[in-house]
Design a protein around this nucleic acid. Sequence first.
DNA 1: TTGACATACAACCAGATGGTTGTAGGTTTG
DNA 2: CAAACCTACAACCATCTGGTTGTATGTCAA
Lengths: 124, 124
Amino acid sequence: MAEDDEDRADALFHALADRTRRDIVRRVLAGEHSVSALAAKYDMSFAAVQKHVAVLEKAGLLSKRRQGREQLASGDVDAVRSVASMLTELEGVWRGRIARIDALIAADHPTQPLPSHPDGPRKD
Amino acid sequence: MAEDDEDRADALFHALADRTRRDIVRRVLAGEHSVSALAAKYDMSFAAVQKHVAVLEKAGLLSKRRQGREQLASGDVDAVRSVASMLTELEGVWRGRIARIDALIAADHPTQPLPSHPDGPRKD
DNA sequence: TTGACATACAACCAGATGGTTGTAGGTTTG
DNA sequence: CAAACCTACAACCATCTGGTTGTATGTCAA
């Protein structure tokens, strides 16, 4: 709804739309890593990896904490879940469509309620 | 794992990293819309909307079917679910981390099993 | 057939993106 | 202190992105 939500969604999806950043997210979700430890894993400059980490931090997918001279990055699972919930909302929109289609079918064949749609909404 | 999967993930997340495209996805998940019907909803040229639709189609988030002179676009909920499953996989990585932390805590305090982590994995 | 509508696509442009190198500051170690 | 290391950030560059306009093709209706 709000403008800020769309900004946040833009930032989250964009942050995840790069395989290096997705890999970084995987690593920092599994445990804390310093920026240089992350940089050592990829065939690119330290500065490039640092920029990827900055993009992920701005999107809220990870946070950093200082320990001595190192900056330890840690993944934020809540941000991941918030993205997942956006997709769930989209799936809900689709379910509404199928429900409407089923209603039409039911209106056309009032005496024979069919098993609706083969890939229809799960009733769990 | 495979290179193609990463390409596909890039395309999917990138396609969703634009609010106009997310809005189009919402509409075509709710029901079929012609490209010009979609274009009428946004304050930009027809060609711009058409390019957004093309990006979504290449990513597999929608498909088109011709009907007369119109091209009807329809959302693909399976593509949305595949994105959701990528996020679920990420959340699984995080759960592994928490499990490891809990194991360490248990090893340190073998006689007093605490309720582990306040935001820990759900046991449902 | 002619005209109006729906789509596709090319060419172009400003700004963002993802990489590079270089410079500078803070922290640990010898 | 000096050297080594970790991080931050600016400047630069090629390419991609998201928008534009213009042109071409296909389809429906009069």
